[in-house]
């Protein structure tokens, strides 16, 4: 499986994604420059974390003008798997591939720490290697990761099983205390209705090496591979 990791100017987790993916036998990862207008030859696309185009005006808004995003939209429309991590999630929301928006954290500060996530659905190409209700320990690092959607959209997400990850405690209980950024409904990651576009604020690529304290992020990439 060949994965394209898009490098926007200001991306800073692109190389980390390549490092993490390269550990999986059968998976290869390559950087895709934002000025490319095709993603031909790739089996999956990752929009990595960072501050694309400086994230001025609003996080993720500028990427919509990059040539590669046109190609990514076509790829997604054709059913190709697209994974957006952190800034990548913001880009997916801003470009209309996922509903909702990511706004400033509840306490207005950037937060970098490990979080616990409860896997809500395993019927997607990104979570099928996990078990339902499994708890993953994966870090977050963002200033604007509070997921917001209006009530109708939230209801829609729930009805169609699009909420894939929620912030929980280590036993899977949800509360405001386990919600690091004030996301509605403790949402940490959602997919589109077709289940081939997935955005999440936590960084699975940072939880793939035992030296870094957790390998729970592997299940996401393992799912993509299987």
């Amino acid at each position: 499986m060949k994965v394209g990791v898009v490098r926007f100017p200001g991306s800073n987790c692109d190389q980390d994604c390549v490092v993490a993916l390269s550990q999986f036998p059968g998976m290869s990862a390559e950087i895709l420059w934002h000025k490319e207008d095709t993603v031909a030859g790739f089996d999956a696309i990752i929009l990595p974390g960072g501050f694309s185009y400086g994230d001025y005006l609003r996080c993720g808004v500028s990427a919509r003008f990059s040539p590669v995003m046109g190609a990514v939209k076509d790829f997604a429309a054709a059913g190709g798997p697209v994974l957006g991590v952190c800034n990548g999630f913001q880009i997916l929301c801003e470009s209309g591939l996922l509903p909702g928006a990511l706004v400033r954290n509840r306490d207005l500060r950037f937060i970098c720490e490990h979080t616990h996530l409860r896997v809500e659905r395993t019927d997607t190409p990104f979570t099928r290697a996990a078990s339902s209700g499994q708890i993953l320990r994966i870090p977050i690092a963002h200033g604007e990761g509070c997921y917001f959607a209006d009530n109708d959209t939230l209801r829609d997400l729930r009805e169609h099983g699009q909420v894939l990850l929620r912030y929980s405690d280590e036993r899977g209980y949800l509360s405001q205390e386990t919600n690091p950024n004030g996301s509605r409904d403790n949402i940490a990651g959602i997919c589109n209705r077709e289940r081939n576009v997935f955005g999440l604020m936590p960084h699975p690529e940072r939880a793939c090496d035992p030296l870094l304290g957790s390998t729970d992020g592997r299940v996401i990439f393992q799912s993509l591979l299987s």
């Binding site: 185009y53 400086g54 001025y56 005006l57 808004v61 500028s62 003008f65």
Partner: peptide, 10 residues
């Protein structure tokens, strides 16, 4: 004002 510069470009 980096934000202004970025917004002009957009």
């Amino acid at each position: 004002d980096p934000q202004g510069v970025a917004t002009a470009k957009l």
